[in-house]
Simulated assay, not measured.
Amino acid sequence: MGNRAKARRGRAEDPVNRQRVSIEGVEAFLRKAAAVQPDRDQVAFLCIGTDCSTGDSFGPLVGTLLKQSGWGRVVGTLDDPCDADRYESLKSAIPESLLTIAIDACLGSKEEEPGYIVGEGPLFPGHAVGKRLSPAGHYSIAGIVGPKSVKPYWTIQHASLHEVLGMARALASAVQAAWSQPEVEAMRLKA
């Protein structure tokens, strides 16, 4: 079997249980991650994408907002994106001991309400546009920035900046809220 067939087969057999959720579902998902690792200093965010494409800027926008909110371990911002060319080296620089949350844009069914795909397990970046990058993250969040189409590059390039920015702001706020809840603060102080 050729490498392309193996890659497609491996992708189809994704062991991660993924769910499409609203921002409220993302908040619940992040509360679970915060309960597993309440110490913010032991959490890293791998925010994948580029500032050169509207839809693909979702990850770097989230990364920028997290950095501005005081998170210290953020890889991938508008100033310093984690794009396909730099992905492998930036990913490998994150210590394995950190709980890593991978964030990227994706294409999917577009509905009125912004949607996200979450999973306890790695994210496969670039899948929407046919890239085959190695998986990343203990937890993964993908923002649905446009509908699946026969022209994925065009779709991701022409996503609404207003919607992408709104989704990024909502996700960054959800991260802040998850690690600010009283139970997590209490666990962090006990450690």
Rank of each mutant, 00 (worst) to 15 (best):
M1I: 13
M1P: 08
R4E: 00
A5R: 14
A7E: 00
R9A: 11
D14G: 09
P15V: 12
P15G: 08
V16D: 09
R18P: 07
V21P: 02
S22V: 04
S22G: 03
F29T: 11
V36C: 07
V36H: 09
L46I: 11
I48S: 03
D51Q: 12
D51L: 12
C52Y: 08
C52D: 09
S53H: 05
G55R: 11
V62R: 02
G63E: 14
L66G: 11
K67P: 02
S69P: 08
G70C: 03
G72K: 05
R86Y: 12
Y87H: 02
Y87W: 09
E88N: 04
K91A: 14
A93I: 10
I94N: 11
L99W: 06
T100I: 13
I101T: 05
I101A: 12
A102Q: 01
L107F: 13
S109T: 13
K110L: 15
G115W: 04
E120Y: 03
E120Q: 10
E120C: 06
G130K: 01
R132M: 00
P135D: 07
P135S: 14
I141A: 00
G143E: 03
G146N: 14
P147A: 15
P147Y: 10
K148V: 13
S149R: 10
H158N: 15
S160T: 08
L161T: 13
V164W: 10
V164R: 04
G166K: 11
G166A: 13
A170W: 07
A170P: 11
L171G: 04
A172L: 07
V175R: 01
V175C: 10
A178Y: 04
W179E: 13
E183M: 06
A186R: 00
M187C: 06
L189V: 08
K190T: 03
A191Q: 14
